[in-house]
């Protein structure tokens, strides 16, 4: 070192001793997030908070929640909401997993076509897809006409307005989300792991159950939570394909709003839905954190 090198710290000038924050260079500052923060505060956080207040009337705070969780009818609705979401989730997983597996292991050059076909339904409205099912399965629809023509049935069966139809409609709308979630994780699973399991003597089924499936569990979890939460928030499918046979919280909120205008009660039901969504989000964050993804 040349010149008056390496002064002991105590002798260095006052100015050079001043400690600075040491913040690194950035093009953006917190100010850049301010408009979005204000907007989301005003039109997302505060309305949701106000909605919680709305569901807690001053005279009898927990009246609506008490009804919701004790009255057999409403308790049934809550139960049915969970049940419909759970069944849809499991069905989407069972139906979608083989498709993901095919995409990752065998699709090759067809992969982008398959991705496109999975996203294509997003280009159509849910009303259109629901309408399609109605056209297919209505009393004078295509399926009845064909079955009658083939003398398989004697009179047209009513296939719309059944619980089954609701599930078909929900699965149709939501299964692409499951497939895309699982695929993105399955892509990261190295095929050589499966090969090594087979070299070690595992059968194909055993390899799948002990290697492939456990390794794709993160994608399964993400997909399941997504489908579960989305089902919770749907009401159009129940409204148009259920014929009143399937009543969930979302549908009830819609009906409360359009018919009875019982605002406080609708707010309480919405908050129960929000609670389900929050539980889902928490589980998802856990999963992501465990994976070390930010």
């Amino acid at each position: 070192m040349s010149q008056p090198a390496a002064l002991p710290i105590a002798e260095a000038g006052e100015a050079t001793l001043r400690s600075r924050s040491g913040r690194p260079f950035q093009i953006s500052s917190g100010l850049w997030a301010l408009p979005a923060l204000i907007f989301l505060m005003a039109f997302f956080i505060i309305p949701l908070a106000a909605n919680i207040a709305r569901s807690l009337p001053a005279e009898d705070m927990f009246r609506f929640y008490a009804v919701l969780f004790t009255d057999p009818y409403y308790l049934g609705v809550v139960w049915q909401t969970v049940k419909v979401s759970a069944i849809t989730t499991v069905a989407c997983l069972l139906i979608g997993y083989p498709v993901s597996y095919f995409m990752v292991r065998f699709a090759g050059r067809w992969n982008s076509l398959i991705v496109f076909l999975l996203i294509a339904p997003l280009l159509t409205s849910i009303i259109m897809r629901t309408f399609g099912w109605t056209v297919l399965f209505a009393r004078k629809g295509l399926v009845n006409t064909m079955l009658l023509g083939a003398d398989l049935i004697e009179k047209p069966e009513n296939m719309v307005n059944t619980e089954m139809m609701v599930y078909v409609g929900l699965i149709h709308v939501l299964v692409p989300f499951m497939v895309l979630s699982i695929t993105s994780v399955l892509q990261g699973v190295n095929p050589s792991l499966e090969e090594s399991a087979q070299i070690l003597g595992a059968s194909k089924l055993r390899t799948f159950l002990t290697v492939t499936f456990p390794l794709s569990i993160d994608g399964i979890a993400t997909g399941c939570i997504l489908v579960f939460v989305l089902t919770n928030g749907s009401f159009l499918t129940m409204l148009l394909l259920g014929g009143g046979k399937v009543t969930t919280l979302s549908l009830l909120i819609y009906q409360q709003f359009t018919l009875t205008q019982n605002i406080g009660f609708a707010a309480a039901m919405g908050n129960v839905l929000l609670l389900f969504a929050l539980i889902g989000m928490t589980i998802q964050l856990r999963f992501l954190r465990r994976k070390g993804v930010k």
Binding site: R18, R20, S21, R23, P24, F25
Partner: peptide, 14 residues
């Protein structure tokens, strides 16, 4: 190098 370039602010010194 990053302190010289100005991407990172030294805690003391100049």
């Amino acid at each position: 190098l990053r302190i010289i370039a100005g991407f990172s602010m030294p805690n003391t010194g100049s």
